[in-house]
Design a protein around this nucleic acid. Sequence first.
RNA 1: UGGGGUGUAGCCAAGCGGUAAGGCAGCGGCCUUUGGAGCCGCCAUUCGGAGGUUCGAAUCCUCCCACCCCAGCCA
Length: 564
Amino acid sequence: METKDDSSLDFIRTRIEEDIKANKNQGRVHTRFPPEPNGYLHIGHAKSICLNFSLAEEYNGKCNLRFDDTNPCKEEVEYVESIKKDVRWLGFDWEDREFYASDYFEKLYEYAVQLVKKGKAFVCDLSAVEIKDTRGTLTEPGTESPYRNRTIEENLDLFERMRKGEFKDGERVLRAKIDMSSPNLNMRDPVIYRILHASHHRSGDTWCIYPMYDFAHGLCDSIEGITHSICTLEFEDHRPLYDWFLEELDVFRSQQIEFARLNLSFTVMSKRKLLELVQSGYVKAWDDPRMPTLSGLKRRGYTPESIRDFCGRIGLAKRDSVVDIALLEFCLREDQNKRAPRRMAVLDPVEVIIDNYPEGQVEELESENNPEDESMGKRKVPFSRRLYIEREDFREDPPKKYFRLSPGREVRLKHAYYITCQNVIKDPNTGKVQKIHCTYDPKTKGGWAKDGRRVRGTLHWVSVPHARNAEIRLYDRLFNTKNPLDLKEGEDFKENLNPNSLKVLTSSKLEPGLSKAQPGDRFQFLRKGYFCVDPDSTQDRLVFNRSVPLRDTWAKILKKQKQK
RNA sequence: UGGGGUGUAGCCAAGCGGUAAGGCAGCGGCCUUUGGAGCCGCCAUUCGGAGGUUCGAAUCCUCCCACCCCAGCCA
């Protein structure tokens, strides 16, 4: 068993260790991840997934995957499939413990009958509006339903007939009989079963009554022997009700523990809002690389390892928080720096001609695949008289501290030669640089000058005749504001969307070896960032997503210079 | 003006009566065939506020303030 540094246990682990010490549940730890299959998983769910599965692992327990499918109107198999895929992708295994609340519908029904028999539940004929009207307010107690004192026999009969389908949707409900004047609204005779003549994605038309979350969730936990039922803060108020059901039915007592859900800066994290972005067409789909969904992050190029690392770094507590998205980006860089093979790609090309390099000559130059990991080996990259370099790597009139190419200046081409800029050809009308003429020093092969001569700048490059064309998609934050939901009156969160969150480059140039890249493959493009092959790629057109740019010190210097 | 929670740096977050961990971000410097990476250093005299207890308080007590959640037959 992994031992965690107990000097910094979070409050949940502290609690679990206390339970183990007290031999609660014979020291057993059993958790569950309980998604409702009504949407795609996002990075916020990843926090919960990592928490629940890691806890089980750390304390020699188990973690179940349980679909909370008690509302047939919202749930679909498409979602259960995507959820399973995402959890697996993250790297977690629920083995044979794939459960559904719907697996327990019969058992849950029996529990409800038991409650009725105890006089702790009743069939209520009030309409939804009437129930709402009699619930009271935050400061005033509710009033009891006129049906609250039906006899047990009548309740039993009515509930059975509800199940048989004798009533229409909304005609009657089963309610727990608790306390209409409780200051906790959840305890004011909450509805526990409603009539829904809807086909369920698993149980089909077997049922026309469905249990409510509060009733189902705790009892499912109990049935599965869940020891620690971890959920988010908004359910804190529900805990007394959770406990009430377990106590009244005298079943295994699972313990609900609440933690603060994850919020990330510059994005939104609710299924409803993410759906809205998809439906409004602002993003292309749930797996659009700008989305904080797991499928989006995956397509963007995030690795499961980086996301798990992130979930481990964000901390766990009860206070509302907004984690800086820079931490997520940091985790990806940290992961990819050690693992991503280096390649050269010129995103925005301009041509360099090396005047003194023999026409028609090609050299295969040796390049390391990853300076962080020698075991990743080397590769050959073709070099010739005509090369592409990054347009921004040349400045006719270089600002201070600019180390790159400019007239008369010598720089290094990575793994190749020193070159010196001789002159520039510009479009006479636009003034745009078209070709840069340089000379190279044949004695600097490999990028070293034996005479000890130094250059400040090193550029990446791609040989023109060997280059492969590619489309590169550059992403920026989805929203312009740190908290897109911080709105003025009448404002819609979509007004905070960043109109420049996607920029498409269509004539980027790749070193030839990259033509074999497959969707999902990840690389570091030297000096540019980490990139991932998009599934939109075809045989003759590779598409790359920029997962995250490299840290850019030069950009910071520029920014500072501008501020002055 | 009900109930349930939460306040420690720009963002997370440890801390549990003995004198403010760590990470991200930021800022300096070193190093560098990626302005990447790496390395070194800096970054809370103070813990929402005010009182009190104590030799000693972020930690205990009292009052106050701010923020979040709850009035679905959603989860």
